[in-house]
Design a protein around this nucleic acid. Structure first.
Lengths: 234, 234
DNA sequence: TTCGAACCTTGCTGCAGCACAAAGAGGCGT
DNA sequence: ACGCCTCTTTGTGCTGCAGCAAGGTTCGAA
């Protein structure tokens, strides 16, 4: 059995205030998991036998509506947990997690969650904070979907992505994993066509760059302003 | 100082698995709070000195967008906690809570939260479940806002309200606190006008009843079906 | 190198739902 | 009991966005 080192996870938000003993105990129950690009780590409705911590890569969490439409809930970045159905008292996963790029994660049996929390109460508190943040974010999205126009929503989605998962490079912020127009459409409640149109305009005005599977926001602030003050560059 | 009795709160979800000693300790720190109709229990952005448990009445949680529009996040019903900024690591309230009807609540100093959790670990677990549920619900709303038409969203909002806060009466489910068209509009991301129009049609078809400040869903199932299969009765 | 599969772009058309406007109805305070 | 005020109803044009359709581009596999 592979020994994993506490230093691997000590700095992560969810494990703040835990001592090395606790970390070791936690790691002892974990099994590493490789998720090839495009495959699911867990699926909507399946029994939630495990919960996960992403170490590397990007996961796309999608929910499928009763009429078959997909909605992109969020991207999971390294250091975040997901699939925590057990923590919220469910025994099936409420959504599907797909690897946007090849990803690496740790998996724990769901049954371990209460035990780990008992051993390390700070874990519960940290998890609650994480949930709280997600809840805030969800509420923000609800507010956006309710009141804002499409292009502003797309701008916000891009900025949020950049903030969470972007890398700062010399000429802007880079999102260097595959985010398709379809993904953006699913995040903002619109269609791929409309997203494409909007982004073409922005690309023409030099606000963003690169089309294919990576994306460069040249000037995040300007992007937001452009979105506020209507479509094109005026 | 008023002695509050554990039986008052023992049955509530958030206090499940707590013994009477714990409940008494918790109650010892609580102060009752009356909130007259229309006034705020706490406000967006204010310092979160307290968190609350609603005992009676209904609270409306609203978020105000940067451009001044209101979005109705949820109604709080008796037995639910709110204003738990402290639990998610914030020191200001992320939204405003208004009394939809005269309400009664218990208030605790925010600083008590970690202490109470320490004394009664189940409290943390229960709170997390509550957060999880809200998160699920928020995601459902995001999915609805993203993919469904207005009337279906309104129907869903009504059904959700009925499920959470309705009373079953002989001829349907009654929502007996003031829910204005404006509220529904703010819940579904549309305008008061559109809601009014939609509900007029439903009222004409006998699916709902009562306009003013209470609402009777005559046949919840039919309502949903009607919303699925397009506007009018066909 | 060629083929195929995703993925992206873009013009056109129609319609759902928003803005604006103005009047009607029930509740509450005095 | 009266009148004010808030909530609601309903009509009419306009517009942002989705749906459709057709063509282009990039990447990966054979």
């Amino acid at each position: 059995m592979s020994r994993l080192d506490p230093s691997l996870i000590r700095h992560l938000a969810i494990f703040q205030s835990l001592d090395d003993d606790a970390l070791r105990a936690i790691l002892a129950e974990a099994s590493p998991r490789r998720v090839p690009k495009g495959t699911a780590m867990f699926e909507h409705g399946a029994e939630a036998h495990e919960f996960f911590l992403v170490l590397d890569g990007r996961l796309k969490v999608v929910k499928i509506t009763p009429d078959g439409e997909q909605v992109l809930i969020r991207f999971v970045i390294p250091g975040e947990v997901c699939g925590m159905a057990v923590a919220i008292g469910k025994n099936t996963y409420p959504a599907t997690a797909l690897a946007a790029t090849e990803s690496l994660a740790l998996a724990w049996p769901s049954a371990q969650w209460p035990k780990l929390c008992e051993k390390a109460p700070a874990l519960a508190a940290n998890a609650m904070q994480a949930f709280g943040q997600r809840l805030q974010e969800a509420h923000s999205r609800i507010a956006e979907l309710s009141t804002e126009e499409v292009q502003r929503r797309v701008a916000h989605a891009l900025l949020r992505l950049a903030g969470q998962a972007g890398t700062k490079v010399e000429n802007g912020v880079l999102i260097d994993f595959p985010v398709t127009r379809q993904d953006l459409a699913e995040m903002t409640g619109t269609t791929l066509h409309t997203v494409s149109r909007i982004m073409s305009v922005w690309e023409a005005s030099g606000l963003i760059e690169g089309g294919r599977q990576r994306l460069l926001l040249c000037d995040p602030h300007k992007l937001l302003v452009a979105a506020e003050g209507r479509a094109s560059g005026d």
